[in-house]
Amino acid sequence: MTMFQVENLTKVYGKVRAVDDVSFSIQKGEFVGIIGPNGAGKTTLFHLISGVQPPTSGKVILNNEEITGKAPHLIVQKGLTRTFQVPRPFQELTVHENVEIVKSSKLSVHEQAKQIDHLLQQVGLGSRQSQLAGSLPQGDLRRLEMARALATNPDLLLLDEPFAGLNTAEIESLSELLLQMHDEGITIIIIEHKLKALMKMVKRVIAINFGQLIADDIPQEVVNNEQVLKAYLGDRSWDFAYNH
């Protein structure tokens, strides 16, 4: 069942087409990776989908409802949540408060309050609930991002480079958490440069270059796709990304 569609999505800045006529659809329960060299337009694509920026043209459809250009908080309440490349905790609030303020349209205030402890335990921050978010190390900030995103009770979760800045052990631990979230029924789209870790999790990969979709297939096919290899040529990031 198709739960999410992007139709001919385009974003133009002056003469630059940052996202160029991108179309794809996502089935309920999928776990999809988005790859591409730096500056390919991946994060801009997330910005357009999540309402951070309006697209120049094209449509975004979630659960058969068009959400193109809607305010971010309304898109969240429709069931689509995203995270950012750099974690953005509310530094002067505690870990618990960071999750407590999240507004979910699916749960009552009482139900939401009850799920906070569970979520923080699930992401491994159960013992740090009263700590100020600004004092957390990088790995825990990622976990807090996950807890906040989950607190919105999303149908579709967009993750923008969740492994950035994490060491190998932290990546493994976060991968397990993401797989667990996926097993619980959340559809996930993840942008990630650490391809080795990404390919272990996803069943489908979309590759983007110069704002255009250049491949959409199973991981094994995408890593051998001529256009994808060409996109990464001279960038050395392919070797780096695939070996880290």
Partner: peptide, 21 residues
């Protein structure tokens, strides 16, 4: 109050968590 403080710290992030800033 916590929501007010969150919005004052990062309005965009607050919106991404379903808050109508």
């Amino acid at each position: 109050g916590r929501i007010i403080r969150a919005v004052s710290q990062d309005r965009e992030m607050a919106s991404m968590l379903g808050i109508n800033a």
